[in-house]
Design a protein around this nucleic acid. Structure first.
Lengths: 345, 345
DNA sequence: TAACTGCCTGAAACCGCTTGCAAGAATCGC
DNA sequence: GCGATTCTTGCAAGCGGTTTCAGGCAGTTA
């Protein structure tokens, strides 16, 4: 294989009999270049299928036109949705989005941050992962702050680290809505199946769950608030089994997310009960999962298009120095499907 | 906001009283630098949290250390799995993977290719999308070939474009195994629910489906091979409804993928039938979806870890010029779960 | 026809890092 | 102690673009 060097702007200039400056002007479509040269150069660009190096351009213009993104695991529909929308918006604005899966491992998150820093990303979007832990590991907070000192960091979640922007869902309000939905349907024995409590969403939802019940005169029962550990369908299944073994089981269950809700649904069905006949179930995220189960799962729905757009838009604003709100809250609504029913109080 | 320039290797060199060459050597950890200078420079790097610019380095070393990847939609668990594994392997080898979602739109695929070319990716991984169409659009094939002329292209699928490497699943064999699985369970009235036939996987599976049945003395029935159009759960649901309306419905259904299988399952359950009691269902991909439904779906399983690793490994080989097989086939197996049962012949 | 405009163009510096080359410093053998 | 080696270093030339600045040229004006 012959050591073929990439075609450069210099080659084009030489063959066209012009200077690199002229070619550069043509590439960036700036005015003030005679038509004949323009055509001659264009033809050569076509001929050699020349593409200017983003590396060189980035170096010279001191901007990379790339935005970094961190998420624990794109296989999770929630993050996939977010990434997708972010990518779209970034692309529309001439940016490339590079995503890294961190598996919520602190060392990996930090390693990726370093790498993104080297790549001179112009902004960083942080979704979940260690950023959701409370208390926040000190080393991680430091890394994030150092990052934010260089380029804008936008967190998809509530982090409250001074230099970071944040776009998030008000989980307390969302939980409140979910509880009210079930209360309205006549449920009084409502359970909340969550996971690790070192995740702030768990804390927020747990608190809102209890407060909302009390507000409506229902006393929260300790045995109805169960920590299933993980946030996956297996945990949901196991957690639900525990609930079903209770002397007085709940009539409705709120799951931390759709995955757990799907697990809970399986547990119920396997024991021969019906949903929503015997038990009502509602999840959070309104991901594709809700459409895959029978019955389809009611869920708290977020506007991912809006969410992704807001994340990138905020990053864009912060990058070009435009003033923009540090906090943004994404609206939600209850997506009523088929897993909850009205019961007699 | 003060126009803060990034710290450069030059700044470090100056403050440490050495040349940039020395700093560079320390950065790349090459031998032959006195311990005292090394320490002095390291300290400054820490102090300023200096990270060398990958842009500059890439330009100077004429390599970007990034690999590009194209897929239609990461929200699809199949691609998410693949991406995840590819990213892991790439990272382990010091490469960054940048993923673009193309929605299988030809113009977007080509646009992304151009962009990746500018970014000087050192290799391209193409997963699905337009690459699965038959016949292959000419403009697309041209783009791909042009790309392959510069850097190695590895296709996750069977494409047979000369300069591209390919790693794929033998869909015919996989279908064959699925059919045999059902035959072994005693089924004779077996249906295949697929989607658009301009996708080569559809063609391969369709043919294998018929051939395998015939091989076992079962005559394929036209009304049991239905084209549901899309490849999603909605299509699966609708397609299954059509099958259930047949005067003599099948006893088992093979769906093009898990998404469609999940849709089919819903259709069956909604009409009051049982799975696997009344109907057996099997899908392809063995994604997380199979664990979310009740009953869990049997499915044809691919080894994603192996698959992703093979894609990147092949790219790596091709990049450094090592000879490597142009074709690689990924093994599969039937993941038996709970959606198929034995019946009396 | 000389002086003045404005438009095109190219020379050259620069972006931040790597590396070949050659010179100076340190170490070694005798 | 001295020349021969072996280490350490720094200089400077790229890598492939962008951009500033000044010069060349044609068209105007007086």
């Amino acid at each position: 294989m012959d050591a073929k060097r990439e075609i450069t702007i210099y080659d084009i200039a030489k063959e066209a009999g012009v200077s690199t400056a002229t070619v550069s002007r043509i590439l960036s479509n700036s005015a003030g270049v005679k038509q004949d040269k323009r055509e001659r150069v264009q033809a050569l660009i076509e001929k050699y299928n020349f593409r200017p190096s983003a590396l060189a351009r980035g170096l010279s213009e001191t901007h990379s036109k790339v935005i970094g993104m961190l998420c624990p695991d794109v296989r999770n529909a929630y993050y996939a949705n977010l990434f997708m929308e972010c990518e779209r918006t970034a692309f529309e604005n001439g940016y490339t989005l590079v995503l890294n899966n961190t598996f919520a491992q602190e060392s990996l998150e930090i390693a990726f941050m370093e790498k993104l820093l080297e790549q001179r990303v112009e902004s960083l979007i942080v979704c979940g992962g260690v950023a959701d832990w409370r208390p926040l590991p000190e080393r991680y907070a430091k890394s994030l702050e150092r990052f934010a000192k260089r380029v804008p960091v936008v967190v998809a979640g509530k982090l409250d680290i001074e230099p970071c922007h944040q776009v998030y869902i008000d989980h307390a309000q969302a939980m409140c809505a979910a509880v009210r939905h079930l209360l309205t349907l006549g449920h009084r024995r409502i359970a909340f199946m969550h996971g690790f409590t070192y995740i702030y969403q768990t804390q927020d939802k747990l608190q809102a769950f209890q407060e909302t019940l009390q507000e409506y005169g229902v006393t929260p029962r300790a045995e109805y608030m169960i920590n299933a550990g993980e946030f996956d369908e297996q945990a949901g299944l196991l957690g639900m089994k525990r609930l079903l073994c209770l002397p007085e089981p709940p009539t409705a269950v709120i799951a931390m997310n759709d995955l757990m809700a799907a697990g809970a649904l399986q547990a119920v069905l396997r024991l021969g009960y019906a949903v929503p006949g015997d038990f009502s179930i509602i999840g959070f995220d309104d991901s594709i999962i809700t459409e895959l189960t029978e019955p389809n799962l009611s869920s708290v729905h977020y506007d991912y298009v809006h969410y992704g757009k807001a994340l990138i838009q905020t990053a864009l604003c912060a990058m070009n120095g435009t003033q923009c709100a540090r906090d943004q809250v994404i609206p939600f609504r209850i997506a009523v499907k088929a897993s909850c029913r009205k019961i007699d109080a």
